[in-house]
Deep mutational scan, measured.
Amino acid sequence: DVEPGKFYKGVVTRIEKYGAFINLNEQVRGLLRPRDMISLRAENLNVGDEIIVQAIDVRPEKREIDFKYIP
């Protein structure tokens, strides 16, 4: 289970104008929005990159997770 405030290692699987999709594993995926990329620009991300993200909002009923990148 993903808990708000905890840090996780994930892999960038898709990049859109509104953010990057980060997979923690095959069943868990969330969104890293540009406003939550402190000191990281979306254009510096590539599909396949491994990054550490913090879960900031977890909505299990919608199967949605928002992440924040903190260097």
Rank of each mutant, 00 (worst) to 15 (best):
E43F: 11
E43H: 13
K62D: 07
N23P: 00
I52C: 15
I51E: 00
E43I: 11
E61T: 08
K6G: 09
K6Y: 08
D57P: 03
V58M: 05
N44M: 14
L31A: 03
K68C: 12
I70E: 08
I51C: 01
I52A: 02
Q27C: 13
F21W: 15
L40T: 08
A55D: 01
K62Q: 10
P60A: 10
L45W: 04
R35T: 10
R29D: 07
R63P: 06
E50P: 08
R33K: 08
R41D: 10
K68D: 03
N23I: 10
R33D: 05
R63H: 12
D36C: 11
N46Y: 10
G5Y: 05
V2R: 02
Q27F: 15
E26Q: 12
P4E: 10
K68Q: 09
K62P: 05
E50R: 12
R14P: 01
P34L: 15
I51G: 00
T13P: 00
I56R: 05
L32G: 03
T13D: 03
G30W: 03
I22A: 01
A20R: 00
V47N: 01
I65Y: 08
G48W: 04
Y69T: 04
V58G: 04
R14K: 10
F21M: 08
N23K: 14
D1W: 15
L40A: 07
V12M: 01
P4T: 12
M37E: 04
E64L: 13
I70A: 09
M37S: 05
T13I: 09
A42G: 11
I56C: 09
K9D: 02
L24T: 01
V12K: 00
E61I: 08
E16K: 07
N44R: 10
V12N: 00
K68W: 06
I56Q: 06
G5F: 05
P60T: 09
I38A: 11
I70P: 03
Q54A: 04
I65T: 03
V47T: 03
N44V: 10
Q27M: 13
T13Y: 05
Y8G: 01
L24C: 08
S39M: 13
Y8N: 00
A55R: 02
M37I: 08
R59C: 08
D57A: 15
R41G: 12
D57H: 14
E26D: 14
Q27N: 14
A20Q: 01
K17T: 11
E61A: 11
N25K: 05
N25S: 14
I56W: 05
G30P: 02
F67V: 05
K68T: 06
E26P: 14
L40P: 05
E3Y: 12
P71R: 13
V47K: 03
Y18C: 09
E16F: 12
A42N: 10
R14Y: 05
R59A: 04
I22T: 00
R63N: 14
G10S: 01
V28N: 05
V58I: 09
I38E: 12
R35N: 09
K17N: 10
P71E: 12
E61C: 08
A42D: 07
I65H: 03
V47L: 10
E3L: 14
E26Y: 11
L45E: 00
E50N: 09
R59M: 04
E50H: 14
I38N: 12
P34S: 14
Y8T: 01
E43C: 14
D1K: 13
A42E: 08
I22C: 02
V11N: 02
V2Q: 03
I22L: 03
R63M: 12
K9C: 15
R29G: 14
K17I: 13
R33I: 11
V2L: 08
K9P: 03
E3Q: 14
V53E: 00
Y8D: 00
R29S: 13
K17H: 12
L40I: 13
I56D: 02
V28E: 04
P34D: 11
D66A: 08
E50Q: 11
F7G: 01
N46A: 14
F21D: 01
G48I: 00
K62F: 09
E3R: 12
Q27H: 15
N44W: 14
I15Y: 01
V12R: 00
Q27L: 12
D49V: 05
V12H: 00
V28M: 08
N44P: 08
Q27W: 15
N23D: 11
R63A: 10
D1H: 14
E61Q: 10
V11F: 08
K6A: 07
